[in-house]
Amino acid sequence: MSSSSGQAMLKLDAVEAWYGSIQALKGITLEVNEGEIISLIGSNGAGKTTTMKTIHGLMKPKAGRIEYLGRDTAKISTQELVQMGMAQSPEGRRVFPKMTVLENLEMGAFQREDQSEVASDIEDIYEMFPRLRERKEQKAGLMSGGEQQMLAMGRALMARPRLLLLDEPSMGLAPLVIQQIFDIIVEINRKGTTVLLVEQNANVALAISHRAYVLETGTVVLEGTGKELLASDAVRKAYLGE
């Protein structure tokens, strides 16, 4: 319970979460420091998405403690977390299907006070994803998976996040598109946004991560730098199909 490494932007300490009578997280402990890209990797059902939801206040932990920017998040709502600079591109993208690309991006800035700067930020997003500019009047539900992923990330960035949560950005995408998306993640991080990335595609995720945690049935079984984990036999066997 000590706060020896008080610099951490986000800290999870023995966090447990349940869906009804099923325990999804069995004591997750991890840390994200400012400026890092951190990956959570693991197979289906390991608790990666649940961890994300719990961090973002969409699920309440039953035990343990989550600290964001030095504050216990137990009594902080998702809205406030968004205001405190935590934004998420959720699993399955979840763009607003009947809204246009532009409207979706505007929704990303919903909690911002400085609405006057929204227009110029949308321009920045279009620079980053030229595809979205071409499609700005298109209903989001009619776009391809890759375009929707770009939109979901752009929408999250519209909140001007300090911490960006990305849940399975590679899901269902072609390798070329995945490479594109991950290049942009590195770019976003270089510009100063801390990234917490959840991925099944361990290979790409570890390649860009400063550090990573391997989750298995609700607990952290391994942690290390991206390089260490890429080289680890256990990881190669379990998640890289070798």
């Binding site: 998702t78 977390l81 998420q88 979840r94 607003f96 009947k98 990303g108 919903f110």
Partner: peptide, 17 residues
């Protein structure tokens, strides 16, 4: 806009704050 967003995807709307 919050109403329309919530109608289309409640979970995503919550994530937007």
């Amino acid at each position: 806009k919050a109403m329309r967003a919530t109608a289309q995807d409640q979970g995503a709307a919550a994530i937007m704050g």
